[in-house]
Write a protein that binds this DNA or RNA. Sequence first.
DNA 1: CAAGAAATGGAAGAATCTTCCACTGAAACT
DNA 2: AGTTTCAGTGGAAGATTCTTCCATTTCTTG
Lengths: 158, 158
Amino acid sequence: MEESSTETLDRIDVRILRALQAEGRLTNADLAARVNVSAATCHRRTQRLFEEGYITGVRAEIAPAAVGLGALVMVGVVLDRSTPESFAAFEEAVHKLKEVLDCNLVAGDFDYLLKIRVRDMADFNKLHGQKLIALPGVRQTRTFFVMKEVKENARLPF
Amino acid sequence: MEESSTETLDRIDVRILRALQAEGRLTNADLAARVNVSAATCHRRTQRLFEEGYITGVRAEIAPAAVGLGALVMVGVVLDRSTPESFAAFEEAVHKLKEVLDCNLVAGDFDYLLKIRVRDMADFNKLHGQKLIALPGVRQTRTFFVMKEVKENARLPF
DNA sequence: CAAGAAATGGAAGAATCTTCCACTGAAACT
DNA sequence: AGTTTCAGTGGAAGATTCTTCCATTTCTTG
């Protein structure tokens, strides 16, 4: 009574997930060898993991600085009112802001916590002044400039 | 005087990066077609992007809930002292905590902001009581439970 | 304008994918 | 127990893709 939602994943599925989380471009043949299954079985298993949504996608990670996105900023946001409509409007607007990489509704001193990538501080100031504080229902924001990325997007611990 | 660090990436490189960021398992043949280049050229370009560090890796994204990690928590941390040694010790310890997915040194009310994934609140309480407040130099923590993931790990806007 | 350097696309053998099929082993039922 | 069903497995093989070589084109530089 503790495997909660891992029930339909056996040992082999978990190995496949771990391997692909670390190396998404692994060849099916290589993956099969690591997981100790025939290529055919591995192919079927992997396909199922994709189709049933255990793997939501495979993405290349781009070095942010290489594409002119050297600055990372976290922003706490407090809304004016706490009505369902306020939240919905805010979230919809946030979805359209491509600089916002993460957005989470939280319990605590803020309503939302945002993770934002821009070129530099000047760029952030512009974004803040022209877009962030203009988002629907925003009462107040608190900015946390990231001075050092200690750990970034680590692998899931399963 | 504004392309900063994108100088060595031409239009084609950028298209490759965009395509692979969205679909990391794209076949070289498909990628070549999308980018409008021969397979050979596409292969060479892509290889260079990996070798020179523009692409830092390709990873499958696993649905957290599917592997028993349904709870997301953000934690602000304040350290006792602000000496280089304190920071180094804290960062080293954080690297060993697999539940910590992100860790950033920030300017503002906190010293660090952590992003943590666990099974549920009970699990977090255990982690908090046994590991987080025991990290070297921690004076205070502030917890933000995530009630809704509005946007998660969006693609880089370049 | 010529010479060298850098990048390109075609071609082809090697490797991989993807599907089909016969087989195994574990339920489920009589 | 006997046997029927069925989900899951690995081998095999045609289709596809990778990866490298090389001749050609394009861009630089003097």
